[in-house]
Nucleic acid binder design. Structure first.
Length: 479
RNA sequence: GGUCCCAUCGUCUAGUGGUCAGGACACCGGCCUCUCACGUCGGUAACGCGGGUUCGACUCCCGCUGGGAUCACCA
């Protein structure tokens, strides 16, 4: 039997990184085994599902390089297009006495729950309608009819249901703990646990890979599989990802969506590598290409305990992938970020490459890189007053002037070695050390005390811009 | 509260009865150096507690404690 896994997000918001990790693991498992990976859209909740969310999910997955063998835009993989199938299955269960109508109102149920809680009993459904007679051909609730009953699954009262999980191991649930859950709402919409079972069965999912928040649902789903005469799939429940405070990862922890990381200048390789590496390991290896991830992945190497999201490590990985890129590649990728930051995008790709090459080891994301490139991308640089006070003193005006005129004699696109020669001449003439001249020059050219090597900066800036900034600084000293 | 899951440095983890408990991020220090980085060398830092089993437990069993998930006409 060929392995088939699925990822089934509901299009009710952004694609969350904790959530997409489950998808990633499911995808890795399928690819590792040469199997199929299905993207299914759990949109039974028509109220909350939106087209924008769906588009974001699809785009996020594509950006990460997680591809699917079946799924959108094929409508067959949307739950909303499978309602007939769910109705048919529910009607069958009803006929066979494996499900029954429940006439309790939401208000009554709510009252019972509160009552049970007060009396320290389990809050589950008490089975009020379980044994009431009903006509075997009773109609299912439907959207138009607005019937005043729901359909509940008649779950076995005795015995136990065992979940053999590929990551969590063996878990036993007493059937007496499991109440009769609603499989069809009074508005004719099937509920999650029911629709999921039918989807997993119909699409021939062999391994259900998902977050361990679904573990308590699993015995119920197994029972539904059995009631339908179907064999349940294998399960792999992955531990969840928490924020730095140990609480479930959410908006208040900052960026949580895949898009947020993309827009913050992270690379898909870094995010993928990071997500894979939390909750899964392969010895001491930290850096994994997609190819390696697929080759090494397995549930036996997945941890059972929840992980805490560590933004610093993600940043480090991103830095790794940034350094690994060629300047040409980086130059291409940085352009949208230059644009977004409001700079005029330089037309000369070779120049952008040169610029990027000097910044590559100083920025951890594309956004940081553009921030750092301000003095390259704009002539509107502001000289930091503290830096000026420290390095742009009257006695440096003369050496700066000498340097300016020497550079003025160079060709526009002088190389680093020519710049170095000029520096050495000026240094010798004034009996200065490199540090004494480099810092003032740095302040004059970049506005601050931190930048790439000063020869590189000049080589990238070019003769005219360098000389202009030098002269401006000299003028400022004189003033 | 019931049920289920989990437990090695601050964080991600290696470890499957005998290790000075290893690696990575972060942090601290040295070196490199025109600044900042990069790089490099080194350092601080962990088996939650209590019982067993065993010649010997981080590793196996039980209990405790602590965390988490879940108990909807959401998914």
């Amino acid at each position: 039997m060929t392995v088939c896994t699925r990822y089934a997000p509901s299009p009710t918001g952004s694609l969350h990184i904790g959530n997409v990790r489950s998808g990633l693991f499911a995808w890795l498992y399928a690819r590792h085994n040469g199997g199929r990976f299905i993207l299914r859209i759990d949109d039974t909740d028509q109220e909350r599902s939106t087209r924008e969310s769906l588009e974001e999910i699809v785009a996020s997955l594509e950006w990460l390089g997680i591809d699917w063998d079946a799924g959108p835009p094929d409508r067959r993989y949307f739950q909303s297009s499978r309602f007939d199938r769910y109705r048919e299955a529910a009607a069958r269960l009803l006929r066979e006495g494996k499900a029954y109508p429940c006439y309790c109102t939401p208000q009554e149920l709510e009252a019972k729950r509160r009552q049970a809680e007060r009396e320290h009993r389990k809050p589950g459904y008490d089975g009020t309608c379980r044994d009431k007679p009903y006509p075997p051909e009773l109609a299912l609730p439907d959207r138009a009819g607005g019937r005043n009953y729901t359909i509940r699954f008649r779950s076995p009262r005795d015995g136990q249901t065992v979940v053999e999980d590929l990551v969590k191991g063996h878990s036993v649930f007493q059937n007496s703990e499991l109440d009769d859950l609603i499989i069809f709402r009074s508005d004719g919409v099937p509920t999650y646990n029911f629709a999921t079972v039918l989807d997993d069965a119909d699409f021939e999912i062999t391994h259900v890979v998902r977050g361990d928040d679904h573990l308590p649902n699993t015995p119920r789903q197994i029972q539904i599989f059995r009631a339908l005469g179907l064999t349940p799939p294998a399960y792999a429940h992955l531990p969840m990802v928490a924020g730095p405070d140990g609480k479930p990862l959410s908006k208040r922890h900052g960026a949580t969506s895949v898009f947020a990381y993309r827009d913050a200048g992270y690379f898909p390789e870094a995010l993928l590598n990071y997500l894979a590496r939390m909750g899964w390991s392969h010895g001491d290896q930290e850096i994994f290409s997609k190819r390696e991830l697929i080759e090494y992945f397995g549930f036996d190497a997945c941890g059972k305990s929840p992980g805490i999201f560590n933004p610093e490590k993600l940043l480090w990985l991103n830095f790794h992938y940034l350094k690994e890129r060629t300047p040409a590649q980086l130059a291409r990728e940085v352009i949208p970020f230059i644009e977004r930051r409001g700079y005029q995008v330089p037309g000369d790709m070779a120049w952008i490459e040169k610029m990027v090459a000097t910044l590559r080891e100083r920025a951890k994301t594309l956004v940081e890189l553009v921030d750092f490139a301000h003095f390259y991308l704009s002539d509107d640089i502001r000289i930091d007053p503290k830096a000026a006070a420290k390095f742009l003193k009257p006695e440096i005006a003369q050496p700066l002037g000498a340097l300016a005129s020497a550079i003025a004699a160079l060709p526009e696109n002088c190389g680093e070695s020519a710049v170095q020669q000029v520096f050495e001449q000026v240094l010798a003439r004034f009996g200065m050390k490199l540090g004494q001249l480099a810092q003032p020059v740095r302040v004059a050219l970049t506005g601050g005390t931190v930048s790439p090597g000063i020869y590189e900066v000049i080589a990238v800036l070019g003769r005219s811009r360098t000389v202009a900034r030098l002269n401006r600084a000299i003028a400022q000293i004189g003033a």
